[in-house]
Design a binder for these strands. Structure first.
Lengths: 216, 216, 216, 216
DNA sequence: TATGAATGAGGCTTCATTCAT
DNA sequence: AATGAATGAAGCCTCATTCAT
């Protein structure tokens, strides 16, 4: 079963045990959803036992919520890396779109957890104040760049930041979430490395065109 | 419990019974997903008994696949209604976008079934040739209009029909699929009747601008 | 395990199966209480399986409530046998006391279920209207006889029927319920056949003396 | 959680810790019974930790037995207060009955532990010599008063002290133990302050009448 | 003396499915 | 074509208890 040597390493390491459980749980919930995931299966893939899951997380729901939060927080770490301070509005907006697109691509497990949340009518998202506030920063960044571009006269004035944010999110999210069904119907073409580059630049292009085009 | 009079009406009406079961199953699978739906619950809401589900559909998977197909076919009926023959490329494309957007909005149960399929890596979609081919027509229409606009010199040449189709689908789908999580984080504003009108026209506007803008 | 021949006899005999489960459950809950009884143990002693318990009774609480009701109703069957119509108030009251005393003695399993109910603050008794109303008849009988005796001038006037009923119940119940602790402390003497006869007649004697004594 | 200051006070105070645990355990066992009580729950309500329970009492059974003994001894403290030396047999017997009745009323937690013992066939009571001998004194007192009254010619001769003791105990005990079920069926009337006074005096009256009535 | 972490065993319950008629 | 009864397997969770420090 479990490597006795390894277990000894973890003994009394509450944070380590919790983290181990969370990583496994996140993967399992992302893969199978709340209803589809199995506590037994999660425990099996863990360095510890099923009993510890209940010890630390209470019940399946508690574990799910913790895994959801873990998925968000883990992903958030890499989010700040983007530096747009020195860029003009166009380039800044392009950078934000590219970052969002690639960020979603890089974290399919979070996308899948959010898909599950939507299947569940965002029941657990609603429960967690922490989670609800998490994405506001992304919106704020779009708002700032948009405002700057509008002040500079580079961007058209009749564009709403929330709506723009929504469009960027929609396409970045759908790219990951609906890849299985879309590629089943229309082929893998769009999802090759090359295809994804084209897609990303097309989104950038279409958003910037929309924001900057004089005629129409 | 069940109205005896009504049941008598269905007696010997195999198609009626099957249809009844399918409609209930579709609603339940759309609501709870494959893993989350309960055969008992489905049977309960049916005019007939649990045994009949197994009689007609074999097992839960069989019922799910049948419900998935039913969801697609039921929705497909209303799809042809759109008449774009007399329209110019711009108006035709606008009509297609508006139709797609509203069509997705009008059929959340299908959206939810597709969400579930994506959670399941489109396992059942892949099984059904029937389902795979179903959406090709929508793509074809976009292709035709795009080609016409490009021939007329109204639309820019460097746009790919599949990519364009993808963008329209992405936003129309995400609008329904991710409403729970998005509205939890950013409010219901975008999802009021007025908000949805703005969103739809924004999508139309941005796509058409992208297709037609000379400068950039 | 189970006799295959016997099972075949029970097959499709829903009432038989339910009754079988109830009798076993009653015995187990009487013996161990709600918390102490084990569903596995009950199932084991049953002609059927654990699954059927849930099929018919939903959960442990449901089974407990059903067993409680069964205990009451089963005991109630023999209750009418007492014929006091032709008797004078003294003899009638004596008959009622003797009947109550012996009736409690004859049904320790019901006494034990009621003990358990009292440990649980009568939580389930309160839930069941059926159970609440069940003992009113006994009180009514005492009321009638008392009133008759008071009208006849045989019984003293300042006696309350409910209080009298309470005294009869108290001693008849305690005789069964507290036999373990009482006999541990004070010996089995009172609980031999002879001791029980003495006890019963002592109760009759003391109640009738109280009801009829002129002096004081 | 726990008041740190208070805990420091208890530190090194083994007797204090044990006493604290016992008081909590008594309350929990009285409330839920042996099977229904939870070690976790007891530990939670304690000033100390679960580990200490095992340290001092070995296991759940050990804790239960200790709590049972604690319940008896704690209650016993106030028992001597009754002074009947200067009273005649009638008044002395009345005083004993009143004392017993009120004493039971005042200590429902002991009554509930004894109820539980009876549910368990007095298993733990039988184990403890200490507990078995505890109530003999009460019986002795009744014996003495009864003998005195019989010698004086005030009480009838054919009354057995143990039986009399039993009757007093039965009614005093049942008043507390079966209040939940009795009041559920017949109302709270008998259990108001006024009702309890009436009940107590009725018991006194009926016992004394029985003991002293000449005619019948 | 004290404690947070850990746990095996067993508890209750639910699931999709099949049987017998 | 139809149904109420029945079920094995597996799910989630809780219990008293012990370990390591």
């Amino acid at each position: 079963m479990k490597d006795e040597q390894l277990r000894r390493t973890w003994k009394q390491d509450a944070e380590g045990v919790k983290h181990d459980i969370l990583m496994v749980a996140m993967a399992e919930f992302a893969e199978h959803g709340l209803a589809g995931a199995r506590i037994d299966e999660i425990a099996e893939k863990t360095k510890t036992s099923k009993r510890m899951i209940y010890y630390y997380f209470g019940d399946k729901d508690g574990l799910y919520l913790a895994a959801l939060e873990a998925a968000y927080t883990r992903v958030r770490a890499g989010e700040e890396d983007i530096d747009i301070e020195g860029l003009g509005p166009r380039d800044a907006m392009g950078a934000v779109i590219r970052f969002t697109f690639e960020h979603h691509r890089a974290h399919p497990e979070l996308i899948r957890m959010v898909m599950n949340e939507n299947v569940n009518h965002a029941a657990y998202l609603k429960k967690s104040e922490f989670l609800r506030d998490l994405n506001l920063r992304t919106l704020k960044r779009v708002e700032r760049i948009l405002a700057r571009g509008q002040d500079d006269g580079v961007f058209r004035k009749d564009v709403d930041a929330l709506m723009l944010h929504w469009q960027i999110q929609a396409q970045s999210f759908y790219n990951v979430s609906n890849r299985p069904s879309f590629s089943t119907k229309f082929g893998e073409e769009l999802f090759s490395d090359e295809g994804q580059n084209v897609m990303r630049e097309t989104i950038v292009d279409s958003v910037l065109t929309y924001l900057t085009c004089k005629a129409g």
